[in-house]
Amino acid sequence: MVVYNEIVAVASGAGLIGVALFLSSLLRGKRIDSEGWAAFFGVSGLLLFVLGVHTTVTWPFGGEGFEYANIAFGQPAAAFGALLLFAAIYLWRNRELFTRETEGLREVALEAAKPASIFVGALGLGMAVLAITFVRFQLGAAPPEEPISGRFGHLPILEALFLGGLWGIVAVGALLFAFAILTGRPQLLRWVVWAWVIGGIVFLLFGAMNFYTHIGMYHNIEYGTNHKW
């Protein structure tokens, strides 16, 4: 089975943290290097969009009831990647604006985010439903061959709660972002920053850990070893 949810999780975590830090700088009126942020959003967005679309249309996660991962991982990654690419294009095309102005820049940027916020809210709704789905069907349990996570595979509710909570906190941030932007309540965006920083850090650490656990899983399967840690 081909898997690359490790880099998808790492890029998602980095992307969420980046968006949160960018938003925090914007709300505080700090000067923003739009070219640097455009490059960051472009790189992370391209990775997520390409791998997310590939997962969505080819379903590389297959067999033994694991097909749900193509939906839960691939489709949100593709959508988030597309949003990051939009942010990269906007920041690059408007780099002179960000260079010249600091006063009133927040209002201009938040106004420009209104159309995209509709899709952010829609994606947040989808993530919320996925969070419920993880818990309802107790999805995500690691196979016994996988180090660390596999030790708790006999308790599927644990990983289901972890994944549901992770998807859920990102969903709360997305729904709150859409509400704050569309109703003109920028003071609510500080809670969006916190939700996406927390979710981003967890995604980043989870993806990094999976580089170890997934390689260990394949090693255990291929060589008949029994590494648990």
Results as ranks from 00 to 15, higher is better:
7 I>M: 01
193 V>W: 01
206 F>Y: 11
29 G>Y: 10
81 G>Q: 03
147 P>T: 04
196 W>T: 06
223 Y>N: 07
165 G>A: 05
201 I>V: 13
83 L>T: 03
99 T>P: 11
167 W>F: 10
177 F>R: 02
165 G>Y: 05
71 I>D: 12
51 L>W: 03
31 R>N: 10
152 F>N: 02
116 A>G: 14
161 L>M: 03
69 A>D: 11
10 V>K: 05
118 I>K: 13
25 S>Y: 14
215 I>M: 15
87 A>P: 02
30 K>S: 14
15 G>H: 06
153 G>D: 01
189 L>A: 02
209 M>P: 11
151 R>L: 06
82 A>D: 10
227 H>Q: 15
151 R>P: 11
86 F>C: 09
86 F>M: 13
172 V>S: 08
7 I>V: 06
103 E>I: 05
26 L>A: 03
221 I>P: 07
30 K>L: 15
185 R>P: 10
62 G>E: 12
210 N>M: 13
150 G>A: 06
194 W>F: 11
21 L>C: 15
47 L>P: 06
189 L>V: 08
69 A>Q: 14
159 E>Y: 15
105 L>T: 06
126 G>H: 00
78 A>H: 04
76 P>Q: 09
194 W>C: 12
179 F>D: 10
89 I>M: 06
193 V>P: 00
41 F>T: 00
71 I>Q: 12
206 F>R: 03
176 L>H: 06
8 V>P: 02
210 N>V: 13
21 L>D: 05
148 I>A: 03
161 L>C: 13
84 L>F: 14
53 V>L: 03
63 G>V: 01
214 H>L: 15
142 A>Y: 01
50 V>C: 11
157 I>W: 04
226 N>A: 10
12 S>I: 15
100 R>Q: 14
77 A>P: 01
38 A>T: 02
154 H>E: 10
14 A>P: 10
5 N>K: 08
167 W>Y: 08
169 I>D: 00
178 A>I: 03
175 L>R: 03
145 E>R: 02
213 T>C: 02
171 A>I: 01
102 T>F: 13
137 F>D: 05
